[in-house]
Design a protein around this nucleic acid. Structure first.
Lengths: 126, 126
DNA sequence: ACAACCTTACCACGAGTGTGTCAAGGTTGT
DNA sequence: ACAACCTTGACACACTCGTGGTAAGGTTGT
C-alpha cells in the first residue's frame, strides 16, 4: 500500500497530525482508512494538503471558509440562494423608480406601521 | 430622502440596530450616510437585509461565510486558487498510474528523507 | 513482548463571531 | 430647549476555530 500514516503525512505536508485530524473533521480531506482504522494518505491527499496550506496562508483564509466553499459546490440550493442574494445588488433610491411600495416623507409616525405591513415584500398578497 | 434610519430599518428587517452595524462592519451591507453620518437604509438594503436573514437561518451559515462568498466573487485570484484546489480531487492510488514520484514499499526508513526532498512537487527543479 | 505507532476523547487557550448593554457626545424635530 | 434619535467605543458573554497537549486503549513491526 503506497500510502502514508498520519505522522508521515504530517511531516511531508508540514501540518501536524493534530491538524490532519482536524482537517478531516472539517470535511476537507478525508483519507482512506486501513482495516484497523489507521488513516492512509495517498499522493492525492498529500498534494491537496500542501495546496491547502498554500491556499490558507496566501489568502489568509481559514479552514471553515474553505469548507464553506466546498459546501457551495455541493449544495446546489445553497449556491442558488447565495447567488440570489448577490444578484440583488443594493440599488440606490435613484435607480429605483419612485415605487409606492416604500414611500413616506412626512408621515413619520405611521411610517413604521405601514412598513410592518409591507415587511413581506413580494410574498404576501400584493 | 426615502430611506430609513437604523432603528427603523432594524424593525422592518427584524435585525437589531446592533446587528445592522455589525453587518456593516462585516462588509455585507453598507448603507449610505447622511451628511451628519446617520446610516440611511434604502429599499435595496432593506431587501438584502431580509434576504440575508433568510439565507443565514435557512442554511445555518454565518455572516463570515457570506462575507467569504462575497470575497470569492470579488477576488478573482482567490476564486481561481480555490477552484484549483477543488479541481485536484483526491485521486486514489488506483487512479494514479504507479508514478515514481512517490514510491516506497519496503525502504521505510529512507522514505521520509526522500519525501522531504519531494515536498515541493511541481515548484522546485523537476 | 515491547517500542513505536495509531485511535478516540478530553482539557486548555487565544482569537474571532454574534449578540446585548451602557457611556459620552452629536443631530434633529417640535 | 428638550426628548428622541444617531454616532463610535467599550465591557461582557457564550460559542466556534485553530492549535497544542495528555490519557486510555488498540495495532504493528522486529
Amino acid at each position: 500500500m503506497d500510502a502514508l500514516t498520519i505522522q508521515e503525512a504530517a511531516q511531508t505536508t508540514e501540518w501536524s497530525p493534530r491538524m490532519l485530524r482536524y482537517i478531516e473533521r472539517a470535511g476537507l480531506i478525508e483519507p482512506q482508512r486501513s482495516q484497523s482504522g489507521y488513516r492512509l494518505y495517498g499522493p492525492g491527499e498529500l498534494q491537496r494538503l500542501r495546496t491547502l496550506r498554500e491556499l490558507a496562508s496566501r489568502f489568509g483564509i481559514g479552514l471553515a471558509e474553505i469548507g464553506f466553499a466546498m459546501r457551495l459546490r455541493r449544495d446546489e440550493q445553497l449556491a442558488e440562494a447565495v447567488d440570489a442574494w448577490f444578484e440583488a445588488e443594493p440599488r440606490r433610491p435613484e435607480d429605483v423608480p419612485p415605487a409606492e411600495w416604500l414611500r413616506w416623507e412626512q408621515d413619520k409616525h405611521t411610517k413604521l406601521l405601514a412598513l410592518a405591513a409591507a415587511a413581506t415584500p413580494a410574498t404576501s398578497r400584493a
